[in-house]
Computed example of a mutant assay.
Amino acid sequence: MDFLEIGMNVLVNKNAARVTGVSGSGLKATLINSKKSISFHPTWETAYYDSNWNIIADYRKNKR
Results as ranks from 00 to 15, higher is better:
Y49S: 03
A47K: 14
K36C: 00
S23N: 12
F40N: 13
Y59D: 07
V12L: 01
G7N: 06
V22M: 09
G7P: 09
S37N: 14
K14S: 10
I32T: 10
N33S: 13
P42D: 03
R18S: 12
I55Q: 12
E5H: 10
I32W: 00
T46C: 15
R64D: 04
T46W: 10
I38A: 12
F3L: 09
A47N: 12
N15W: 03
S39K: 13
T20V: 05
N54Y: 11
H41A: 11
T30C: 06
Y48M: 09
G24Y: 05
S25V: 08
K14A: 04
L11N: 06
S37R: 10
V12G: 01
E45N: 15
R64V: 02
G7Y: 07
A47S: 15
D58C: 08
I38N: 04
S51D: 13
A17M: 07
K28Y: 04
A57N: 14
N54S: 12
R60I: 07
D58A: 10
D2L: 10
N62G: 06
N33W: 03
A29R: 04
N13K: 13
A29E: 11
M8I: 08
E45M: 15
T46M: 06
L4Q: 08
E5P: 01
R60Y: 09
I38F: 00
G7F: 06
V12A: 04
